[in-house]
Computed example of a mutant assay.
Amino acid sequence: MFERANQKSSSQGRSVKLPGKSARHSDAKPVEIARELRAKSALGKREAQLAKAEAKLSG
Rank of each mutant, 00 (worst) to 15 (best):
M1R: 08
M1D: 04
M1A: 10
M1H: 06
F2C: 01
E3T: 13
R4A: 14
R4Q: 12
R4M: 13
A5T: 13
A5C: 11
A5Y: 11
A5E: 12
N6Q: 13
N6P: 06
N6A: 14
N6W: 14
Q7F: 13
Q7N: 10
Q7I: 09
Q7Y: 08
K8A: 14
K8S: 12
K8T: 09
S9T: 14
S9D: 12
S9C: 11
S10H: 10
S10F: 05
S10N: 15
S10V: 04
S11W: 09
S11P: 05
S11K: 15
S11H: 10
S11D: 12
Q12T: 08
Q12K: 13
Q12G: 06
Q12Y: 06
Q12F: 02
Q12V: 03
Q12H: 08
G13A: 10
G13H: 05
G13N: 11
R14L: 02
R14F: 03
S15V: 13
S15K: 15
V16I: 14
V16E: 03
V16W: 02
V16Q: 01
L18I: 04
L18P: 02
P19V: 03
P19Q: 07
P19S: 09
P19G: 02
G20Q: 04
G20Y: 04
G20V: 01
K21W: 04
S22K: 10
A23E: 15
A23N: 05
R24A: 02
H25G: 00
S26Q: 03
S26T: 06
D27H: 15
K29M: 12
K29I: 07
K29V: 10
P30F: 03
P30R: 02
E32I: 01
E32A: 14
E32K: 12
I33F: 01
I33E: 00
A34H: 03
R35W: 07
R35H: 09
R35T: 05
R35L: 08
E36H: 08
E36V: 08
E36T: 06
E36C: 04
L37V: 08
L37Y: 04
L37N: 02
L37Q: 06
L37E: 05
K40P: 02
K40N: 14
K40A: 15
S41F: 12
S41H: 13
S41K: 11
A42G: 08
A42K: 14
A42H: 08
A42Y: 02
L43D: 09
L43V: 10
L43I: 07
L43E: 15
K45F: 01
R46E: 11
R46C: 05
E47T: 07
E47L: 15
E47S: 06
E47Y: 06
E47D: 09
Q49P: 00
Q49Y: 05
L50K: 12
A51D: 11
A51Y: 04
K52M: 07
K52T: 10
K52Y: 07
K52F: 09
A53K: 12
A53D: 08
E54W: 02
E54H: 09
A55M: 05
A55V: 00
A55L: 09
K56C: 01
L57P: 01
L57R: 14
S58P: 00
G59T: 08
G59I: 01
G59L: 10
